[in-house]
Design a binder for these strands. Structure first.
Length: 269
DNA sequence: ATACCGACCTGTCAGC
DNA sequence: TGCTGACAGGTCGGTA
């Protein structure tokens, strides 16, 4: 489901609602799939801990915790395709596919729900910095350095979290159409001017999407149950057959790196 | 080293 | 109405 702007929106929403709260008790579902840490370790780290703050790192939600003995730890959540972190009243019905619930001192309940179980939960005592570089902060020079050597299609490189973390299928397509670059172009064939354009386009798209609260494709909602509205500003993603907003040429859909990929055959070179 | 491809899961929707 | 298959915002590990 969620890429950088959606995760950022969710993390900010969670931060507003649970920062400062204390986790009193934790229930972890028995299915091992969504867990990267053993259930007992998750429960042990979370119970009694105070949530200092909630932030986004790449596509991950990071809860910074202080334990009973003042020890620092982190609870790292990856939502996969369909994961959700919800803050609910305890009496609210528990949704299907709930894998973790945490009772908070304030009376609220934090819930992790994930039908497809592609999400991951992990506790750790060292700081999580993510697999790659933050696309929102990278400079044009660093950006060019990162990409100019790879022979993979530029879209595949944008999706590779070890380079930039946080960019997913929607924002890869949206930044490429804004930069006028075809998704199948080998990264090392992009000129410096094109890389600069792509760098600017990506940062602009991410910023706009964050301001819009993310893209709600199908059923995405943030921590408050609010939909984002960046989907109305998509130029490529989900617009197969519809006219390009610039030149009216129908948007094409192909597969790149195994992912559905949308682009304008005329505007993108 | 690099790059495809299936696997991991469930839900939804289009087509028959 | 109901079945089947394709597809979905992500990542990992295997194979060529």
């Amino acid at each position: 489901m969620p890429e950088l702007p959606e995760v950022e929106t969710i993390a900010n929403g969670l931060n507003k609602r649970v920062a400062g709260d204390v986790i009193e008790s934790v229930w972890v579902g028995s299915k091992p799939e969504p867990l990267k840490s053993p259930p007992a370790a998750i429960a042990h780290t979370l119970e009694g801990a105070r949530i200092q703050r909630v932030q986004r790192v790449g596509k991950h939600i990071v809860f910074s915790l202080t334990g009973r003995q003042n020890q620092q730890s982190e609870f790292v959540v990856h939502l996969g395709m369909t994961g959700r972190m919800l803050v609910a009243a305890p009496e609210a019905e528990t949704p299907k596919h709930t894998h973790l619930t945490a009772r908070l001192q304030s009376g609220k309940e934090l819930r992790f729900v994930d039908p497809r179980r592609f999400g991951r939960l992990e506790v750790r005592d060292s700081r999580f910095t993510g697999p790659g570089t933050e696309p929102t902060r990278i400079s044009a020079d660093e950006f060019a350095d990162l990409f100019h050597r790879s022979k993979a299609p530029i879209k595949a490189v944008l999706l590779n979290q070890k380079f930039l973390h946080g960019v997913g299928n929607i924002y890869a397509d949206e930044s490429l159409i804004r930069a006028g670059v075809r998704p199948r172009r080998r990264a090392n064939t992009l000129t410096r001017a094109e890389l600069n354009k792509l760098h600017a386009a990506l940062q602009q798209v991410l910023q706009e999407a964050i301001r819009a609260g993310g893209s709600s494709v199908s059923d995405y909602v943030d921590a408050d149950g609010e939909k984002g509205f960046f989907q109305f500003r998509h130029r490529a993603y989900g617009r197969e057959g519809k006219p390009c907003l610039k030149c009216k040429t129908p948007i094409k859909k192909i597969t790149v790196g195994g992912r559905g990929t949308h682009y304008c055959p005329k505007c993108q070179k």
